[in-house]
């Protein structure tokens, strides 16, 4: 068997091992390279920046264990950003696992905030926790929060939370941030909040879902979009609060280069093989 054939028929486990090393190396020896900020991230950041101080903002937290490392830092930056603007935040999750991770991201943001920023539970933010029913649940929440949620994530009755005194429907919010992770749920928000209530909305999703939602940004139905680790890193950079996403974005770049190298190598060797008349 020729060398070219051996390389082309290489055991895929060797490729996985190479990928593992390529991804682990930048984490063990971090190298920060300049990040070029994408238009979608700038639009989403500017949207958050333009929200009037003190407004009520609705946030769907959809990051699960798998997507928390990539989209979690972005949501943490978002919470940090909005709380420094004295916005009142209401969180909910439409799947079970993200209900826990959303609280982790809230805690991360609060730990980073300066002492001068108000961040009291029930006064500056409320986590309604898990909301059952998927898109129907979102529609019901938008129409009447108290009809679907009677207690928050910690079991406190909604009526006992000072921040919830004046709000009960989507009409009471100034903006929505939909951190959908890999739930594929951004269209729920567009259909049930943007359309019927004319609420401006920005989104975030994993990298693989960005092509699916970019038409919504082009049409103006989404005001911006943060995609995966890169989106989170860009938010941290735009906000001027460096976090874990920036270091991880570098590892993604190395992984991408490794992948690109393999694609190029495979194609070149395949062409050489064909030119030599080998099968």
């Amino acid at each position: 068997m020729s060398v070219i054939k051996k390389i082309l028929n290489m055991d895929q486990r060797i490729i996985y091992l190479g990928l593992f090393i390529a991804l682990a190396f930048p984490i063990l020896s971090p190298v920060i390279v300049p990040v070029v900020i994408q238009d979608y991230s700038t639009q989403a950041f500017n949207f958050a920046k333009a929200i009037p101080d003190g407004s009520y903002v609705l946030i769907e937290g959809g990051n699960a264990a798998a997507t928390h490392p990539q989209c979690g830092p972005g949501l943490t930056a978002n919470i940090y950003h909005l709380l420094t603007k004295n916005c009142k935040l209401v969180f909910f999750s439409i799947t079970a696992e993200p209900a826990y991770w959303t609280q982790v991201e809230i805690d991360d943001a609060i730990a980073k905030l300066p002492a001068s920023v108000a961040k009291e539970k029930g006064v500056n933010w409320v986590n309604l926790g898990y909301l059952s029913g998927g898109e129907s649940g979102v529609a019901a929440l938008a129409a009447d929060i108290r009809s679907v949620v009677s207690k928050d994530h910690f079991g406190t009755p909604i009526g006992d939370l000072p921040m919830m005194k004046d709000i009960n429907s989507a009409k009471d919010f100034a903006a929505v941030f939909w951190w959908g992770g890999s739930e594929g749920s951004i269209p729920y928000g567009i259909r049930q909040l943007v359309g019927p209530y004319n609420l401006p909305m920005s989104g975030s999703c994993t990298t693989n879902e960005v092509p699916n939602y970019s038409p919504y940004v082009s049409s103006g139905q989404l005001k911006g979009l943060f995609g995966g680790i890169r989106g989170s890193a860009e938010y941290e950079l735009l906000l001027g609060v460096p976090g874990p996403a920036l270091a991880q974005a570098m590892a993604t770049n190395i992984g991408g280069l490794y992948f690109l190298g393999l694609v190029l190598l495979g194609n070149i060797l395949y062409l050489v093989q064909r030119m030599r008349g080998e099968k």
């Binding site: 991804l23 997507t67 990539q70 890999s182 990298t207 590892a251």
Partner: peptide, 10 residues
């Protein structure tokens, strides 16, 4: 592909 890398990186 990038999303899968990000899962491993996480």
């Amino acid at each position: 592909a990038s999303f899968r890398f990000e899962l491993v990186i996480g």
